[in-house]
């Protein structure tokens, strides 16, 4: 099939638009998560999303509304993860490990109660671009506008918090509020990204493009822009490669972003001599 003919399909168009936006969202938020050493929060949120989706499906919510019904649950889970990670008695990665395991355990139990793993649940676990609707694209676009605005207006504050939280607090930054905003926006992104790359793989999209950009970036803004470019390139090349090679889209996107990371790491090493 000629390449340009692919672009004529409605589902491919929706996947490419939503994918571009999700690549951008994951990169813009992921760079702060990686620098804050919150990378695993994406994983914890994804696993919690699995439990939430399983609950929503058990409640008989139709496929059209699963994403929207899962959002409030995942936002509550995000605040719970943040609360646990800031606890003095439980280390951050331990807290995320607890929530991840709980999310998966609840998901498995709820999926079993609803008659086992069906096509719907697998679509959310591993992604299925065929189920990306027009409303999903519009919702993702709205979230992208919010995230770009937040990064444009408060990116310097997020950057200061990522550098050193105590220094940021003594610069008058409300670091608690900055962390809540970052984690809630990430939770929304994880939910919206699950149809594209799947719950199991979404955290990789939050980590790999930013880490690729960190191999090459000099300065905060260039690195942020580079991460955005890496995120978008990973998703677009992954979608098109998966269609051309008849491979699962989610997995292909993550492999594409990993290859981009390898190239960035090699170029970075070569530049540093």
């Amino acid at each position: 099939m000629p390449f340009f003919e692919i672009l004529g399909y409605g589902f491919i168009q929706r996947a490419l638009i939503a994918g571009t936006l999700i690549g951008l969202l994951c990169a813009l938020l992921g760079i702060f998560l990686v620098l804050r050493r919150f990378s695993l929060i994406g994983d914890g949120l994804a696993h919690f999303t699995f439990g939430s989706v399983a609950l929503v499906l058990l409640c008989g919510v139709s496929a059209t509304w699963v994403t929207y019904a899962a959002i409030p649950l995942v936002l509550i889970g995000a605040l719970g993860i943040l609360k646990l990670t800031s606890s003095a008695r439980i280390h951050g990665d331990t807290a995320i490990g607890i929530v991840s395991a709980l999310g998966i355990a609840l998901g498995v139990i709820l999926a079993s109660l609803s008659g086992g793993y069906n096509v719907d649940l697998f679509s959310y676990l591993f992604g299925n671009i065929l189920i990306i609707s027009r409303n999903d694209v519009l919702l993702t676009a709205a979230l992208a506008i919010v995230v770009v605005a937040v990064v444009a207006l408060r990116g310097r504050a997020f950057f200061a918090v990522a550098f050193d939280e105590d220094l940021a607090r003594t610069s008058g930054i409300n670091t608690g509020r900055a962390n809540i905003i970052l984690v809630l926006l990430t939770a929304l992104t994880v939910v919206l990204a699950m149809k594209l790359v799947g719950i199991m793989l979404v955290s990789a999209l939050l980590i790999l493009p930013p880490v690729a950009a960190l191999q090459l970036g000099r300065g905060f803004l260039p690195t942020l822009l580079l991460a955005a470019a890496c995120g978008i390139l990973s998703v677009l090349s992954g979608i098109l490669a998966s269609f051309a090679l008849n491979l699962p889209t989610g997995g292909t996107i993550i492999v594409a972003s990993f290859l981009l990371f390898v190239v960035a790491a090699l170029v970075g090493r070569w530049r540093r001599g």
Binding site: L35, F159, A162, F163, D164, E165, D166, L167, A213, L214, Q215, G217, R218, G219, F220, P222, T223
Partner: peptide, 10 residues
């Protein structure tokens, strides 16, 4: 400082 990454992009 909490930052320890030599590639911190600042």
């Amino acid at each position: 400082l909490s930052f320890a990454n030599p590639h911190f992009p600042a």
